[in-house]
């Protein structure tokens, strides 16, 4: 790749949003493959929170986590020289 080529903005956005979305989806499936919400949060299940809510909140929480990780990767990938020259 030539040095001059800039990475388009859409690629930057996608590189943060998309891998985090995919990995959190996989992580959620693996997690709930092993545990059912009733095993992990028996009190909440007993109080009537639906499984759909567990899956959704878990997914969104995992996405937030992986998103943070992707954002940090993106942050650390920025050239160091810009700040340390």
């Amino acid at each position: 790749m030539s040095e001059k080529k800039e990475i388009p903005k859409i690629q930057r956005v996608v590189a943060v949003l998309w891998p985090s979305f995919l990995t959190s989806g996989v992580a959620m499936i693996l997690f709930y493959w092993i545990f059912s919400p009733g095993e992990v949060f028996p009190e909440l299940v007993a109080s009537g929170v639906s499984n759909m809510a567990f899956y959704s909140v878990t997914f969104l929480f995992l996405w937030l986590t992986t998103l943070t990780s992707c954002l940090l990767s993106y942050y650390f990938l920025r050239p160091c020289s810009r700040w340390n020259d």
């Binding site: 030539s2 001059k4 080529k5 800039e6 990475i7 388009p8 903005k9 859409i10």
Partner: peptide, 13 residues
């Protein structure tokens, strides 16, 4: 040869 639009990818799509 590199196409001109590839050089300016950061520009609006």
């Amino acid at each position: 040869p590199v196409k001109p639009e590839q050089d300016s990818l950061y520009a609006k799509r």
